[in-house]
Amino acid sequence: MKIPIPALVVPVVCLLLYFFVPGLRQRPWTTLRIAGGIVAIAGYFLFIAARLQLGRSFSVSPQAKQLVTHGLYARIRNPIYVFVGVMWLGVIVALHLYWLFVPFVMLLVLQLIRSDREAKVLQEKFGQTYLIYRKQTWF
């Protein structure tokens, strides 16, 4: 499977922020910044893994093509949402862009609304199978 093109946007945006936000490159790489970078990179690779595991079931609008329950989806119902959040937090800490907490909170709210809509669509299509899966997983 190929890495989805939109996923390549994330590292490009981070690099642009790093190189073009005034004063960002001059800040020292403290332990906290390094930890933030590690969290952001881990979140990014886990996001890519979740997207690849979702395969053809991925869609922009809520659809019930197939109930994916393997890989990261065996433990987390919405790993893409979780790891985008992890990645975002890592970027905030690594780049000291604390103003990004405002859109981050908005992102979390939108993800909760979206995950609720997706759950309804999946429950309609897969019924009891989805409810059992839901009880065995987090978010």
Results as ranks from 00 to 15, higher is better:
residue 86 V to N: 11
residue 18 Y to K: 01
residue 12 V to D: 02
residue 80 I to W: 03
residue 113 I to D: 01
residue 21 V to E: 06
residue 94 A to Y: 08
residue 11 P to G: 03
residue 41 I to D: 09
residue 68 V to E: 06
residue 106 M to G: 14
residue 136 Q to I: 10
residue 18 Y to V: 00
residue 131 L to V: 04
residue 112 L to Y: 03
residue 10 V to F: 09
residue 132 I to P: 07
residue 105 V to C: 10
residue 138 W to Q: 09
residue 138 W to V: 08
residue 116 D to W: 02
residue 11 P to E: 02
residue 115 S to F: 00
residue 95 L to K: 10
residue 15 L to A: 11
residue 25 R to V: 11
residue 65 K to Y: 12
residue 34 I to D: 06
residue 53 Q to H: 14
residue 5 I to W: 11
residue 96 H to I: 05
residue 126 F to W: 09
residue 4 P to V: 00
residue 60 V to S: 12
residue 87 M to H: 03
residue 12 V to Q: 01
residue 22 P to K: 12
residue 88 W to N: 09
residue 44 Y to T: 03
residue 106 M to V: 15
residue 54 L to M: 07
residue 120 K to N: 13
residue 124 E to H: 15
residue 99 W to D: 12
residue 32 L to W: 04
residue 89 L to F: 01
residue 21 V to C: 03
residue 62 P to L: 00
residue 1 M to V: 00
residue 27 R to H: 14
residue 24 L to N: 15
residue 132 I to T: 11
residue 81 Y to T: 00
residue 136 Q to Y: 07
residue 118 E to K: 14
residue 122 L to C: 05
residue 87 M to V: 01
residue 105 V to A: 13
residue 41 I to R: 01
residue 139 F to L: 14
residue 18 Y to P: 06
residue 20 F to I: 00
residue 83 F to T: 01
residue 131 L to C: 08
residue 23 G to W: 02
residue 15 L to Q: 15
residue 1 M to D: 07
residue 102 V to F: 14
residue 125 K to A: 14
residue 58 F to E: 08
residue 118 E to I: 01
residue 138 W to G: 02
residue 33 R to K: 15
